[in-house]
Computed example of a mutant assay.
Amino acid sequence: MVDQTRGGSAYLLALGLNWYSPHNPTGKVFSKEELEAIAAACCEMDCLAITDEVYEYITFDLQKHISLASLPRMQERTIITSSLSKTFSVTGWRIGWACAPTTIASAIKNIHVHITDSAPSPFQEAALAALQSPPGYFKSLKAEYEARRDFVIQMLSDVGFQISFKPQGSFFVFAELPKNWLVSDIEFVKILIEKAGVAAVPGCGFFHGDIDDQNLRTRYVRFAFCKGSDTLNAAARKLQDIDSGEEDTQSSVCI
């Protein structure tokens, strides 16, 4: 909807803002100042904020996750969503939750009971145990992922990928294709799968539809480093092989 009354110019009346930090695919952790600007816009436009905070415990380099709901006037207009999937490596369980003001939470509950069943009881018991994990678990989680991030950045840089932003959180690296590869992101991902057995995600799907620079939209690939050291080392060898033209197509890894 557009309000034409503000100084004669169009003004967007947003119903809701979808937001997540740490960010997928770049790994950016938004600062308090940046979140304050977003909060001010939400309050000015009187809209809800729906935040995805699934990577809140996976931050690096002393970066700290700040929930948008913690800022003044935002608790009453924020719906926080999260899950066990990333922090506890149980993506297949599909255990998640939403935290919201009472009236909104009631509406979410009414919709939820009509579109899905409850999670299996054993998973709920496991979720309770996971959420009571000691602080040491989350500290070690950060340290392990930070080491994997550094390994993957070096691995990609060694074969020509350009890393313009070092991830501050999540477990993704958004990398620009090597300059000597004059193909699109989709074509490159296909080559990686077929010739090196390495799976990644084309970056074009993460760009806004209004961006006209097709060269920008098609030059990035997302890699995930939520894998064990053996898998990451295998991926490094295969990327080096494809860069040197000695690829082995008999086995595959996914990062």
Rank of each mutant, 00 (worst) to 15 (best):
M45Y: 06
Q4H: 05
G27H: 01
K86L: 06
W93D: 03
S82L: 04
P202N: 05
L17S: 07
R222K: 04
V198S: 15
Y145G: 04
W19P: 01
Y137R: 14
L239D: 15
E144P: 00
E194R: 13
S252E: 10
A143H: 08
T87W: 01
F165G: 06
A14P: 04
D150H: 13
F206T: 06
F223G: 13
T5H: 12
S83R: 02
E33C: 00
P120L: 07
A199D: 09
E146V: 01
L192F: 09
Q214L: 02
Y57S: 05
I104N: 06
I163R: 08
G160R: 05
F223C: 11
Q124N: 11
A105D: 00
D61L: 02
Q4C: 00
M45N: 13
I115P: 01
E194P: 02
I66S: 09
E247Q: 12
T87E: 10
I242W: 07
K142N: 00
I80Q: 14
P22H: 04
A175Y: 14
D61E: 05
L131F: 12
L216K: 12
N24D: 11
G8Y: 03
K142C: 00
I79D: 05
E187N: 09
I50C: 04
A100R: 11
I153W: 06
L156P: 14
R77K: 15
T59W: 01
S184C: 07
R222M: 02
D248I: 12
I242E: 03
G203A: 04
F172M: 10
G169Y: 02
E34D: 02
S82I: 04
A200I: 08
H114A: 08
Y57C: 05
E53K: 05
K109I: 04
T78P: 12
S164F: 06
R219H: 09
F138W: 10
R148S: 07
L141V: 03
Q4D: 01
C226D: 13
L12K: 06
G228S: 07
